[in-house]
Design a protein around this nucleic acid. Structure first.
Length: 894
RNA sequence: GGGCCCAUAGCUCAGUUGGUUAGAGCGCUACAUUGACAUUGUAGAGGUCAGCAGUUCGAAUCUGCUUGGGCCCACCA
């Protein structure tokens, strides 16, 4: 027997072990089944699972499990990422505690350290993914530094190099002085910062006492100025072009040049030019052939070009230089200034434009096909709005700085001849120079940006460059599930490389979900301390509850605020399913019931109308869930299942069934138990992609099971209901709806009049037509029992002066419910209740009347709509009459 | 500066192509609870769908403007 409370920990442990011992989730390279494939965005190998992963993975797992159960040959390919910067930083931090740096160890020793770190923590995230229930093909788990991936990386690098798409250049790049490496444009995060605008005075040579004033936000860079620039048409300065100015403090002379880049109307109309430390100035420097004076060391301190300021860090140097400038009278004024400053996404430090030799990838030609693929709909973005973001970036694409001054990653496979300077880029490490034959070769020290290997992920993980069966079967993948924050970093680059090397897009659809925020809508971050640990949540509430919560909250790609209250609610839902199962199983045991899977519903007994009813509801739910999942409307699919299980199956059907199961008729008991189990089985199967653990456990106890694992059983389809004779449900279905409405009406009267449930009532159900008559007669016993009534009568009462009433109408059936209240309650309550009902009816009728009196509405609206309104109006009006009559009687009686 | 998104019950949100008499969960109130479940049951209260204007027979839904909030891109020293 099952425990009365669902114990998620025990069940999850048990199911995990069950899965571990089987190979249920293996994809088949050769199969006649239709393929469905997803690559898992590889998380940082030494990282923790965070709530964003939980969402991302649940979406994928729902899709994967759903397809697997529908007979697809599914591949969910898992992997982990070496995450160059992040991982290297962690290990360096650890070394620092022992007072060591990576340079103390040397490259080889250091890499050994990182590998052992990876060995120690690399499994952590994988087991966290498993505890979430990720049904990946774990045998295919790939790490970005695995040989086959590294091989693909080298192959692509060599190929792009030979095509001339990878080149080396001395350029201004974004430099993180903390990480001491170049980073790419998209790794720079711009933030608004309050700063100052210093107006510096440059003395014009030969014009006694005349100064040009140029403003700057970074005064320390004046040491690297190699020109002063004005607009060629600026009357104020036109005559000075070609002359020289003296740099403050140092007195070094630089030219006054003219360029249209300068905005005459901004500030003084004079700009200082520092080609080695500003991107615009760099361009200008190239145009005017200016000298580039680099002031910085790699750690962000000033170098020998800064003279006496050498060794100071930028921030300190700025203070000192400003005070020196002020002292020397070189500052005209200082204004407060708000500007946006680039920060290193990873380390948070201010990015310095820094002149250095780096490797770059030309992007324009690669971007072209990637752009077209999305424009033409070969790959679709969901939601569609991200298409714009993607295309905008593609249209303005810049060359990508792919080299990083790190050790952890794919080392750039370029060998340079130390004698003749030739670059050798081949698949195998060269022994000697192809040009001069020298053996004095040296491999580039840098590694590739982590995203370089990520860009190849969809095919490198499938065995490329070999023409593997995996690639044939599963490429392109069906859908990529990820967050919109990595459209540029990852999605766009996979599109480009996939098209370049596989000649096809890497995925047919890109589903972009929102961010998981805290309950106040703030981004989760370490510094705010508002991060939610999914592992903790799984421990406290169960993986199923967490998954269902995420799915129920995930709508139309917007961000979701995570609320523990909702999580609790869905934990309760899991428990509800558990207990419904417990109930069914206890009955099975009690009555030694044997499930026959070929059972048929049959109207041998009036009570089997309920079977028709729940099966019809099941049918509706099956097609609804299918439709919603097909459209990736996860919250709606979840909602549909939730209300079917709780509000239809548990609230009504189980209750109806009790009467039948505990009744005399063995035949009816068997019928009820069959439908109970049948419906439960289908419901639980439909839930399985969302809540794999509890459903798998339940399944193992069900008599109706037809495969060892629910994960491999068949997802419910409408076909499952064929042969159950559901065609005739119409009447029975609505009969049950009527019974439900009648019970609700009685409960309503009880509730509003505060009549205790222990107080049995006599009730008059007065049917208004033959169908209602039949339905009420048939289910009299049930109405008495479930309505907790003492007696039911179908005659109009002699006097219903002191009665509560409710007219009930359902799909062509109408019954007046009359409950005598004599001696039970204060009639005022009932008067109030009736008055409220009357007001509501009147408002509704007003709206309808207004509509129907509007000739244009009647003329323009679809006929059936108008017709429905007319019927509704008639109904309301008779209802109103009934209520008014009753109200009169109640009042007369006072 | 350019672009995108959001605003619906006290809270968190659903609401597909305009046709509703605007929904759910939580919370709240009242009552109940010996045979699945207190992680429960039954019932109730609660909304001028941010504001204004427009299109339409009809607007939470479409358009424009306003207000408030969020995100992305660009980077004028």
């Amino acid at each position: 027997m099952l425990e009365s409370k669902y114990n998620s920990k025990d069940v999850e442990a048990k199911i995990s072990e069950f899965w571990d011992n089987r190979k249920d989730f293996k994809a088949e390279d050769l199969s006649t089944k239709p393929p469905f494939s997803v690559i898992l965005p590889p998380p940082n190998v030494t990282g923790f699972l965070h709530i964003g992963h939980a969402l991302d993975h649940t979406v994928q797992d729902v899709l994967i499990r759903w397809h697997r159960m529908r007979g697809f040959n599914t591949l969910w390919l898992p992997g982990t990422d070496h995450a160059g910067i992040a991982t290297q930083s962690v290990v360096e931090k650890k070394l620092k505690k022992d007072g060591k740096s990576r340079h103390d160890l040397g490259r080889e020793k250091f890499l050994e350290e990182v590998w052992s770190w990876k060995e120690e923590y690399g499994n952590r995230i994988v087991s966290q993914m498993k505890s979430l229930g990720d049904s990946c093909d774990w045998d295919r788990l790939t790490f970005t530094l695995d040989d086959n991936v590294s091989n693909a990386v080298r192959k692509v690098f060599v190929s792009l190099y030979k095509k001339g798409l990878i080149y080396k250049g001395k350029r201004l790049v974004n430099w993180s002085s903390k990480l001491q490496t170049a980073i790419s444009d998209i790794e720079v995060e711009y933030k608004d910062v309050k700063g100052s605008l210093w107006h510096l005075k440059y003395e014009v040579v030969g014009e006694d006492g005349k100064f040009l004033i140029a403003a700057t936000t970074r005064p320390e860079t004046f040491l690297g100025d190699t020109a002063i620039c004005v607009h060629p048409e600026d009357e104020r300065y036109k005559n000075l072009i070609g002359k020289k100015v003296k740099l403050p403090l140092t007195g070094r002379e630089i030219n006054i040049i003219a360029d249209e880049y300068v905005d005459k109307d901004f500030g003084t109309g004079v700009v200082k030019i520092t080609p080695a430390h500003d991107f615009n100035d760099y361009e200008m420097g190239l145009r005017h052939n200016l000298e580039q004076i680099n002031l910085l060391n790699t750690d962000g301190s000033l170098n020998e070009n800064a003279g006496e300021y050498k060794g100071l860090h930028v921030q300190e140097a700025r203070k000192k230089i400003v005070s020196d400038l002020e002292e020397g009278g070189f500052i005209d004024k200082i204004e407060p200034h708000k500007q946006s400053v680039g920060h290193c996404e990873r380390s948070g430090v201010v990015i310095e434009p820094y002149l250095s030799e780096q490797w770059f990838m030309k992007m324009e030609s690669l971007a072209e096909p990637a752009k077209r693929a999305v424009e033409s709909g070969t790959t679709d973005f969901i939601p569609e709005k991200w298409t714009k973001t993607y295309l905008h970036w593609m249209n303005n694409i810049q060359d990508w700085c792919i080299s990083r001054q790190l050790w952890w990653g794919h080392r750039i496979p370029v060998f340079t001849c130390q004698d003749c300077g030739e670059h050798i880029v081949e698949m195998d490490d060269p022994a000697d120079c192809i040009k001069c034959g020298s053996k004095n070769l040296k491999q580039d020290e840098d590694v590739l940006d982590t995203w370089f290997s990520s860009a190849l992920w969809p095919f490198s993980t499938m065995g490329w460059p070999e023409k593997t069966e995996t690639l044939k079967t599963f490429y392109p993948t069906s859908v990529l599930v990820t967050g919109p924050d990595i459209i540029f970093f990852w999605v766009a680059r996979m599109m480009m490389q996939g098209l370049e090397y596989m000649k096809d897009v890497p995925f047919r659809k890109v589903y972009l979900h929102g961010l998981v925020r805290d309950s106040q809508g703030r981004k989760m971050s370490k510094s705010l301390g508002n991060s939610i640990d999914p592992v903790e949540l799984i421990n406290d509430y169960g993986a199923d509850a967490l998954r269902f919560t995420l799915m129920a909250q995930l709508a139309s790609g917007r961000d979701l605020k995570f609320s523990t209250q909702r999580l609790e609610g869905y934990r309760n839902f899991i428990n509800k399913i558990w207990n419904a199962t417990r109930f069914c199983l206890s009955l099975t045991q009690e009555y030694s019931f044997k499930y026959n899977e070929n059972f048929k519903t049959d109207l041998k007994n009036d009570l089997s109308a309920f079977d028709y009813w729940i099966l019809k509801k099941l049918e509706i739910t099956i097609s609804d869930v299918h439709e919603k999942l097909e459209q990736m409307r996860f919250s709606e699919a979840a909602q549909s299942l939730y209300s079917f299980v709780w509000n239809e199956f548990c609230d009504w059907f189980l209750e109806f069934s009790k009467l039948r199961v505990y009744g005399e008729s063995e035949e009816d008991r068997a019928a009820a138990l069959h439908v109970l189990h049948f419906t439960l089985d289908k419901a639980v199967k439909m839930l399985h992609p969302f809540t794999p653990f509890v459903t798998e456990e339940i399944y193992s106890h069900l008599p109706a099971k037809n495969s060892e694992s629910m994960a491999l059983s068949q997802y419910p389809t409408l076909g499952d209901l064929e042969g159950l004779n559901l065609e005739e449900t119409g009447d029975y279905f609505n009969d049950v709806e009527l019974i439900k409405a009648l019970l609700t009406a009685v409960r309503n009267i009880r509730g509003e009049n505060r009549i205790k449930v222990s107080q049995a009532l006599k009730v008059f159900f007065v049917p208004k037509d033959e169908k209602s008559q039949k339905a009420v007669q048939r289910h009299k016993a049930l109405l008495v029992k479930m309505g907790l009534l003492s007696e039911v009568s179908f005659e109009e009462p002699q006097t219903f002066a002191k009665s509560a009433v409710a007219p009930v109408k359902v799909e062509g059936r109408a019954v007046d419910v009359i409950v005598p209240l004599e001696g039970l309650v204060d009639l005022d309550e009932e008067v109030q209740r009736i008055e409220k009902v009357i007001t509501k009816i009147e408002t509704d009728m007003n709206i309808l009347n207004k509509k129907l009196n509007n000739e244009k509405y009647v003329a323009n609206a679809p006929e059936d709509l108008v017709e429905a309104d007319k019927v509704l109006l008639t109904d309301l009006s008779s209802k109103l009459d009934f209520m008014k009559l009753h109200l009169n009687r109640l009042s007369m009686n006072e």
